[in-house]
Design a protein around this nucleic acid. Structure first.
Lengths: 129, 129
DNA sequence: ATAAGGCTTCCAGTGACTGGAAGGTCAAGC
DNA sequence: GCTTGACCTTCCAGTCACTGGAAGCCTTAT
């Protein structure tokens, strides 16, 4: 399987797959012509990576998760720890964004949005009440 | 006012203030010794920038907002448009993160987290049910 | 006079790709 | 056999908003 087929099979851009090889997440075989050759195992690994990335895990977390996935003797506690920490980080981000949304939503609502210069948004950014 | 005082007054790192000058957001004066010199106006601009950044506006949005702020003839509609678009982006991000949190939260809850290898988190990342 | 601390510039690194250039390879059609 | 176009390769640069660090000048206090 060439890289474009692997890309189609995993919904990852070919560029991203090359990048994952660069940083040592996967190690596809090479044909005589130098082309990368992807086996079913590689496709599984890439699919795993795509799913983990879609859940927001960092690439380094993905590396750890992939190693644990391939370790038949892993402890689920190790996986859970990574997931739990990531979950906490996500919750923090949601809280931060929600605070921004509330503030900004209020400002947008109170701004007339016409061609006059008076603007509560700018007022709020410039004064400290 | 030297840069470290400006940093203390605005709660921005000195490095960040230098960076803002680099990219042309602010233009502090210079003393005979080459040191940056910050006036009250500069401090106001920096405070404005810090607040806008804290609301998650990109630096380029901040540049536009700062220009509008300094334009006595601005239309509040221009400000509102920037804010509204940013608000939508925030809401999209919150929705994405919330979906991640729900999925991940469920997985973490169902993972025993002990020293056995069976792990719903890895199962979910590797199979497509 | 010297030492500590603040200031300057410039360069490199972060995360996770992404775009593009320059060039090798392959399969199809004439 | 040759050309064309699609595919593959590597490598370099850019993204965003800083941040760390090195090398060297300036100021202030002792």
């Amino acid at each position: 399987m060439n890289i474009s087929q692997a890309a189609a099979a995993t919904d990852l851009p070919a560029k991203t797959i090359r990048y994952y090889e660069d940083i040592g997440l996967i190690t596809p075989d090479r044909g005589d012509n130098g082309y990368r050759s992807f086996s079913d195992t590689h496709i599984h690994q890439l699919t795993f990576l795509a799913r983990a990335r879609a859940l927001g895990f960092s690439v380094e977390d993905c590396r750890s998760l992939l190693e644990l996935w391939e370790d038949r003797d892993r402890a689920s506690a190790d996986v859970r720890k990574i997931a739990q920490e990531h979950l906490s980080a996500i919750e923090t981000k949601i809280a931060d964004l929600t605070a921004m949304r509330d503030t900004l939503g209020h400002l947008v609502k109170t701004c007339a949005g016409d061609n006059r210069p008076d603007c509560p948004i700018l007022n709020s950014l410039s004064s400290s009440d």
